[in-house]
Design a binder for these strands. Structure first.
Lengths: 219, 219
DNA sequence: CGGCCGCTCACCCGTACGAGTGTGCCCCTG
DNA sequence: CAGGGGCACACTCGTACGGGTGAGCGGCCG
């Protein structure tokens, strides 16, 4: 019932450190190591470990892509990503790639061991700072549902729709005014109403909305 | 420097239990209790604790709404939600309401104390099962963006392409900066270079361009 | 080795933009 | 007929945006 672990990191010291740390645990065993992403994928396919400790920055193939491949292959291996800085924007990419967890390399032995056990059990865990960012990001993402019934093209008047389409062509207020032969201030009023009605913030979001609503189509 | 805690739960036994547990910690002090959401909001306003342990199911006002009010008020108090079952769909609501963390009531004393300290420090934490669900949900929500390496638009650099895609999602410079974890001034530089390279005038035209170039696609 | 490039960041400055408020006209409908 | 909605226009105000310039740093290449 011991948990079998593979460590992927390009720095020997890091691999050694974690290896010693984890092998000291009674129910964890480090069964393999890899110095880059490509090797990590191969080792996992070959050794079928329960958990992979994955560094992000590696030569050959980075940890993100390696994670993606490991998850795509139907191994049971769970990926626990380790990184030096939580500042990485890679956090999101790693999670999307299918990582089960995200810890900082300065984690204590206890935290690391706990982490390995948690992901081996099929659950997930994140470093506290990462958790905070993920929650914030999640709140933002799910706060603005893509298709709220309130935001409808149908709510716009004919004129407003016309203006919206022109916004989605990349025209400025002045150009739209010229095009429709009215004053620029008039266009500004229209734009304001459009933004309010659709619950958007600026003309760029309006352009995006127009494309998403198929008011205009690429090509 | 002790962490001041308020406990909100309608069951006396629960309040008692957690209270004893936490007061046993040298650097944590339970300074108040509340039997429902309304009282919780009042206690927080009155006692200005560092952390609130919040049950979700309570009479008068549930923990979600109470959390929302506490966060909305400008107190420094962090809310750590406690629930019996992780099954709750309330998890997402709680996080959107501004909770800093989410633990199950069967958490160990150590986990609970750790949790209180983590949220008091301004970070966040979640129970492992909740973490897994949040990551899954997050991956689903933010799945839309795709591999930027595949198509190199014009002679934009990888980073610039990345920024362009985010522009085409309707993000402001500040939001892009946050997302990529760099300074806003950096994003402004990228945006400028993108506009020059593509011969565009503003970010709206850039968004249009991104759609036309199929860097992003509707739906 | 030096130089180019990509990425990062800072500061200044002018302006288009967006928010808010108010006015007026036309047309349709209750 | 009065009222409401669509449309047009003006004005103020604060700010995000975009232009310009300069500069530091790490990697890659000739």
């Amino acid at each position: 019932m011991t948990i079998r672990v593979v460590i992927a990191d390009d720095q020997m010291m890091v691999r050694e450190g974690f290896s010693v740390l984890l092998n000291a645990m009674p129910d964890i065993e480090v069964v393999g190591e890899a110095v880059d992403g490509r090797e990590a994928v191969a080792r996992v396919a070959e050794l079928r470990p329960d958990v992979v400790l994955m560094d992000i920055r590696m030569p050959e193939m980075n940890g993100i892509d390696a994670t993606r491949e490991i998850v795509a292959a139907d191994t049971e291996a769970k990926v626990l990503v380790l990184t030096t800085f939580d500042l990485d924007e890679y956090v999101y990419q790693a999670l999307r790639a299918g990582a089960s967890g995200f810890l900082l390399k300065d984690a204590s032995a206890r935290q690391l061991a706990d982490g390995v056990k948690v992901v081996a059990a099929g659950e997930s865990l994140l470093a506290p700072t990462v958790t905070r960012r993920l929650i914030t990001e999640f709140a933002k993402l799910s706060d603005v549902p893509k298709a709220p019934t309130s935001a409808r093209v149908g709510d716009l008047t004919e004129r407003e729709t016309e203006v919206l389409v022109l916004i989605a062509q990349g025209l400025s207020n002045g150009e739209i005014a010229e095009h429709l032969v009215v004053a620029e201030s008039t266009i500004k009023t229209h734009v304001s109403r459009i933004l309010v009605k659709l619950g958007l913030r600026d003309r760029t979001q309006a352009a995006v909305f127009a494309y998403e609503a198929r008011l205009v189509t690429p090509g």
